[in-house]
Amino acid sequence: MSDQNTEALEPITGIEVPVYLDYNFTAGRATARFLTGVKNGKLLGQRCPSCRNVYIPPRGCCAACGVATEEEVELSNKATVESFTIVHIPIPGNPIKPPYVIANLVPDGANISFLHVLSECKNEDVRIGMRVEALWKDASEWDYAMENIQYFRPIDEPDMEVEEIGRLKDA
């Protein structure tokens, strides 16, 4: 911008076009129920009436069976590492500093994993099958967001057999 006059003589080859659209987003019923649970410090999954698998976060239906899920199941704060990655680049808008661990976590009682941050351990010690628990932020900070869980951290329990991760179902 130092030399406006010189720049003004250059032909236009590129332009900046702001395209900002305003929406009023309403969460789906399943998501709203799940996030309302999270707001109250609870992880609520939904059980498929057909295959009996428990989904978290619930999406309103069991994608395998194509049927609506209604039955709510409160899940444990404990979970198992199904897999993970050590991330060396920052998440936009997230204060956590790299390198940090993002893990696929299966909460006890659920049959599917979700991604969350794993901390309070050396990154190189993280392994598939490791047992962890949710560390919730102070209740005063709870909102309709998974960030209510600050991160998951290891607990002193033996690793789960890989074949069992996400496979355990209640009768």
């Binding site: 900046e16 395209v19 929406y23 987003f25 998501t31 309302t36």
Partner: peptide
Amino acid sequence: LSQAFTLGYT
């Protein structure tokens, strides 16, 4: 749960 948001980019 409803919330306004802006989807956009320059």
